[in-house]
Computed example of a mutant assay.
Amino acid sequence: MDSYAVFLRGINVGGINIKMAGLREALQSAGFSDVRTLLASGNVVLTSRLDAVAVKRECEKCLRDAFGYDAWVVVLDAARVSELVAACPYPDDDKSTHTYITLSSDEAMLDELDAAGAALEGVEQQRLGPEALAWLAPAGGTLDSPFSKISARPKFKASTTTRNLRTLIKVRDAAAKPGSAGS
């Protein structure tokens, strides 16, 4: 069994409200093991005999069937989450800026987002791999930041999701300690 981190896009915002207990139950009913949720923003650690592509497909089908919304997830091997956290050059806790990592299931879409961000003046970002892009936003101004506005475009909705670095650290730690998460 392999350990995966599953990042749901767009739940508990914009009218799509899912209780974490219901999310865990749905994913367990779909055949996933050791399903644990972190925070209430769609972060899941689970184990499966499937590969990451199949985990993504099955999670999206499960969410669509159980909760009736157009679900998209990004799935990473738990070890890869740890590598991305280690590769991030930005601080996990800073009073003036927040560090975010945009995760993607489509490298071409992340390439496009990376190029769009690089074209903006004053945006600090760094590609961490084919599936991740780290970027900084001013504290208190994340949603108004130019990069955040670009990443929120509908064309990126099905393949990207963004988490702050502190959340990825929690996911990394939960994946390393089976049975330690829950919300």
Score class of each variant (00 low, 15 high):
residue 2 D to R: 15
residue 3 S to R: 15
residue 5 A to F: 13
residue 6 V to D: 04
residue 6 V to Y: 08
residue 7 F to D: 00
residue 8 L to Y: 09
residue 9 R to Y: 08
residue 11 I to G: 02
residue 12 N to L: 06
residue 13 V to W: 10
residue 16 I to M: 06
residue 17 N to V: 15
residue 17 N to C: 07
residue 24 R to Q: 14
residue 24 R to P: 08
residue 28 Q to P: 02
residue 30 A to F: 00
residue 33 S to A: 12
residue 34 D to Y: 10
residue 39 L to R: 05
residue 42 G to M: 06
residue 45 V to C: 12
residue 46 L to H: 04
residue 46 L to N: 07
residue 46 L to A: 09
residue 47 T to W: 02
residue 49 R to H: 13
residue 53 V to H: 14
residue 53 V to I: 09
residue 53 V to G: 15
residue 54 A to P: 01
residue 55 V to T: 12
residue 58 E to A: 10
residue 60 E to Y: 09
residue 61 K to Q: 14
residue 64 R to P: 11
residue 65 D to C: 01
residue 65 D to S: 13
residue 66 A to L: 02
residue 66 A to D: 08
residue 66 A to R: 11
residue 67 F to N: 07
residue 67 F to R: 05
residue 68 G to D: 12
residue 69 Y to K: 03
residue 69 Y to S: 02
residue 71 A to R: 08
residue 73 V to M: 05
residue 75 V to L: 07
residue 75 V to E: 10
residue 77 D to A: 15
residue 78 A to Q: 08
residue 79 A to F: 11
residue 81 V to F: 08
residue 82 S to H: 14
residue 83 E to G: 02
residue 89 P to Y: 12
residue 90 Y to V: 10
residue 90 Y to N: 04
residue 91 P to K: 01
residue 94 D to V: 06
residue 94 D to E: 13
residue 98 H to D: 11
residue 98 H to S: 13
residue 98 H to T: 15
residue 101 I to D: 03
residue 103 L to F: 07
residue 114 D to S: 09
residue 114 D to G: 00
residue 116 A to V: 02
residue 116 A to N: 06
residue 117 G to E: 05
residue 118 A to L: 03
residue 120 L to K: 13
residue 122 G to K: 05
residue 122 G to W: 00
residue 123 V to Q: 15
residue 124 E to K: 13
residue 126 Q to C: 09
residue 129 G to F: 03
residue 130 P to F: 08
residue 130 P to H: 13
residue 133 L to H: 05
residue 134 A to I: 01
residue 135 W to N: 00
residue 137 A to G: 06
residue 140 G to S: 11
residue 141 G to H: 09
residue 142 T to R: 05
residue 143 L to N: 15
residue 144 D to Q: 15
residue 146 P to I: 09
residue 149 K to S: 00
residue 149 K to M: 07
residue 149 K to Y: 00
residue 152 A to F: 12
residue 154 P to R: 12
residue 157 K to R: 14
residue 160 T to D: 06
residue 165 L to N: 08
residue 165 L to K: 07
residue 166 R to P: 07
residue 166 R to Y: 11
residue 166 R to W: 09
residue 169 I to W: 03
residue 170 K to R: 15
residue 170 K to E: 10
residue 171 V to W: 11
residue 171 V to Y: 09
residue 172 R to A: 06
residue 173 D to S: 10
residue 174 A to M: 11
residue 174 A to S: 13
residue 174 A to N: 04
residue 176 A to L: 14
residue 183 S to P: 11
